[in-house]
Design a protein around this nucleic acid. Sequence first.
DNA 1: TCAAAAGTGTTCAGCATACACCCATGT
DNA 2: ACATGGGTGTATGCTGAACACTTTTGA
Lengths: 246, 246
Amino acid sequence: MPKSYPAPARFPVTVDVVALTVSEDVLKVLLITRLIEPFRGALALPGGFVLAGEDLMTAAGRELAEETGVEQIPGYLEQLGSYGPKGRDPRGDVLTVAHLLLAPNFPVLSAGSDAEHAAWYPVSQVLEGELKIAFDHERILADALERAKSKLEYSPLGAAFCGEEFTIAQLRAVYEAVWGTRLDPRNFHRKATGTPGFLEDTGKMTTGDAGRPAALFRLAQVARPSAGQPTPTVLNPPLMRPRGDA
Amino acid sequence: MPKSYPAPARFPVTVDVVALTVSEDVLKVLLITRLIEPFRGALALPGGFVLAGEDLMTAAGRELAEETGVEQIPGYLEQLGSYGPKGRDPRGDVLTVAHLLLAPNFPVLSAGSDAEHAAWYPVSQVLEGELKIAFDHERILADALERAKSKLEYSPLGAAFCGEEFTIAQLRAVYEAVWGTRLDPRNFHRKATGTPGFLEDTGKMTTGDAGRPAALFRLAQVARPSAGQPTPTVLNPPLMRPRGDA
DNA sequence: TCAAAAGTGTTCAGCATACACCCATGT
DNA sequence: ACATGGGTGTATGCTGAACACTTTTGA
């Protein structure tokens, strides 16, 4: 017999979701107002306890649906990382598995009167300290933002922020909002349309806006998150964000 | 009062460690022979249950030390991701948080007679199915390898596989083993020594080997994992791996 | 006719690649 | 002397950045 082992502890496990979207050219995160202790009344990432027999992704999707009132959440969901279990919840040791959702700007229903109030808040307001959020959620948000930034470089998931069909300018606005930089419209256009396996021309054009009509694109078949690969295809070459020197 | 919530389930949580090293120009992973059920007698990643009051990283380090007999494990440890809890352990729902260790080829002590037998095995043998490992550890290893490959591009952590001081050729061997490609020695030399914030010349030279003596380098101060940042500094420009077309 | 936004062409600099070549040691 | 590996110089092609310019709409 092997030596004796300490009794394995059992932990409550939560899933938290950092749902990001771009609206009005600003990167926003979905936050709820907590209705229960701890941090009652404070803002926090949507999330909750994993139930018996449930997988992490499933739990994340369920919590998100419960707290937004939206049945089928659009967008791309992936695991971000785990935090804890030590010293991050006043109730005791709770392990949380954070997830990242890149979504178009879906309308948040504040569901029933006894449900959480969910709304989109500018990410910058949280990370610059203007808006305080509960637990270690600010750190999780910071990690999520970093992940999202690099996702845009190496995967076609920038399009996950847009609707089904979008113009190159709309896509560029996403990149600019997430990266926090300005991009040259001409070079971005060439790069985005020239990257194989990224965009597909729908043949349709916008109309009614100021200026010349823009072509409408959709995400290429091979790049759809749902179509086979759980890991999205890699953009080759990547769409590179300007790297600060120094 | 908010609506009633289902009682949160509590889960046993394990940490698993994918410890990678390069020896004899081959990428190897540390595996143990399991002495207890389930999968008794099979090979598996080192790991075990997280104890009460313990953090994930701490648990990973502790398990690694226990199962290798090495007190202070050298190298760089980071979290990889979480798996489960559903349907990955015959004992029931167990959540595991996988970690990645990039380490020099430290000698594994098979500790006491009642301890696990740990040893280094070529990664390729596992991923090509010649060697079967327990649980969902093959998938975890595959994810770890992918992470390690990209770590080498964007961070100075290739040096984590080498000892304190190393030659450019030794470093190149690491890159070749992890990426599974051949690199031009001349261009690699220029790129590695030319990347700011990566290498520091010790002034010393090798001696006794065949051919011209090589200069010995160490990881630059700013790039040490322990020195401040938990996230290692980013290489800019990155050391790019050859990208397959198509 | 003008403003505004879409999209194309062109130039330039920097870097990855390939490879010729020289250097310094052991045998 | 010669083999072996370390390290430098240099030509070539690709691509990211900058920006002049044309196109197509609404007002």
